[in-house]
Design a protein around this nucleic acid. Structure first.
Lengths: 164, 164
DNA sequence: TATTGTTATACTCTATAACTATA
DNA sequence: TATAGTTATAGAGTATAACAATA
């Protein structure tokens, strides 16, 4: 028997846990190689999963403003991990794509992530990890779906609201 | 049938989800009142739950360096949300305690958190929320337990390593 | 006129190191 | 000598606003 819209007694506790999970994120970040901050790893991972894309799409996937995305992309491009090609369909756009060097770095990242988590989560079952992954993904979806309509009337969400 | 130490195929996915959960944290942070950034809310919440404590204890609970804790504490103290009393048992220490004003702000925070989460998680059951809270708490524990031994030999973890 | 992407500026959060005052 | 706490400095991350180039 599930109870949607019930007491909500655990909302404050969830807020607290979300606030405190930053410590775990920071610890994961310390495992990254030099020159590759967490934000860069995020860019590379998304380009690997979703393939070639434009800045605006990447900003949407990262759920951060495009101005911030632009900086992160410049960082990884300067190090040769991605390439930026002009978009033949729209000369304002640039198409982002992983380079072989970037893919090699991703292999390194995957190994470090796996080693780190294997050490910290040695007493977790695959089922536990799967549940957590599933619930985190669902949490992001629940927030994301609302975010579109919540802030402004514009459907493009991760854009600077353009002058006030 | 659970399988501890199995394939670990979902470790990369967990790393990705942890990286992306920042968007949810930021959205929660936007619901906070002026003058009260997320870090201040964390300080107040912990003092409410654990009662009067010293700086070092708070830093340990926040899982951040005491120098950072000092800044956050100064911020909330300047606004009258906590008071810092000298510790009669150790003149170097200061005892932190919520003020009535701070408790009043906490009531406001709880209401905002609850309203925000009730809106975003309207289709979640209490069981779902409980699972997520439980798994996040366990994740922090798994990382925290390792962190003590991982960095240095000293058992006091959240302290600047004192000169190199 | 609107949109894509970049850059400048400011703010939050964190870590390191140097410092003080006690212990 | 070691510890509790503060402050100065540096670095990562993000948001807002102004801008250039193109649609």
């Amino acid at each position: 028997m599930e109870e949607p819209m019930a007491a909500h007694s655990q909302y404050e506790e969830l807020a607290r846990q979300l606030s405190a999970i930053g410590a775990v994120k920071r610890e994961m970040g310390r495992m990254l190689p030099q020159e590759c901050p967490p934000a860069s790893a995020g860019v590379l991972t998304l380009l690997d999963r979703h393939g070639e894309m434009r800045m605006s799409q990447l900003a949407e996937l990262l759920a951060i403003d495009m101005s911030v995305t632009s900086r992160h992309v410049a960082h990884v491009a300067e190090r040769g991990w991605i390439e930026r090609k002009p978009d033949p369909a729209d000369k304002r756009s640039r198409l982002l794509r992983l380079t072989p060097s970037g893919r090699q770095l991703l292999d390194e990242l995957a190994e470090r992530y796996t080693q780190t988590l294997a050490r910290y989560l040695h007493d977790w079952t695959d089922t536990d990890v799967g549940h957590l992954v599933e619930l985190l993904a669902r949490l992001r979806t629940s927030f994301g779906d609302c975010r579109i309509r919540a802030h402004h009337d514009s459907p493009a969400a991760t854009r600077t609201p353009a002058a006030g």
